[in-house]
């Protein structure tokens, strides 16, 4: 764990790539499905609610929360792999210290 297996440049490239992928999902879920494509998506109705409308008022918000969760978990992992995590003094008890 403690021995770093990648360079800083590699770490940063990986972080950038992940950020880009997550922001693409953010765009597709929020702006594309909730706004630009809301009309065609409203043709599909699940559980009484048109899908585009549901994405705009409920689904997108759930996805936004998940995106930040994925980012936090994946970044923790990458920090450790690259030997770039902060040195823990006393608190590993924080939420999300699951691994």
């Amino acid at each position: 764990m403690a021995t770093p297996q990648m360079s800083r440049e590699e770490y940063w490239q990986k972080q950038l790539r992940r950020t880009l992928i997550l922001l693409t999902v953010w765009f597709v879920v929020g702006l594309l499905s909730g706004i630009l494509l809301i009309e065609p998506l409203n043709e599909f109705v699940f559980g009484g609610i048109p899908f585009g409308f549901w994405m705009a008022q409920q689904g997108s918000i759930f996805v936004f929360v998940s995106l930040i969760l994925i980012y936090a978990v994946a970044s923790d992992r990458l920090d450790a792999e690259a030997g770039l995590a902060e040195v823990d003094d006393e608190s590993t008890s924080g939420p999300g210290a699951g691994h």
Partner: peptide
Amino acid sequence: GSVYLMGWTGGYVLLALL
């Protein structure tokens, strides 16, 4: 009304990632 719902939540993704 989704402009407010998405607008005031989606920004946190930018905040967290960028």
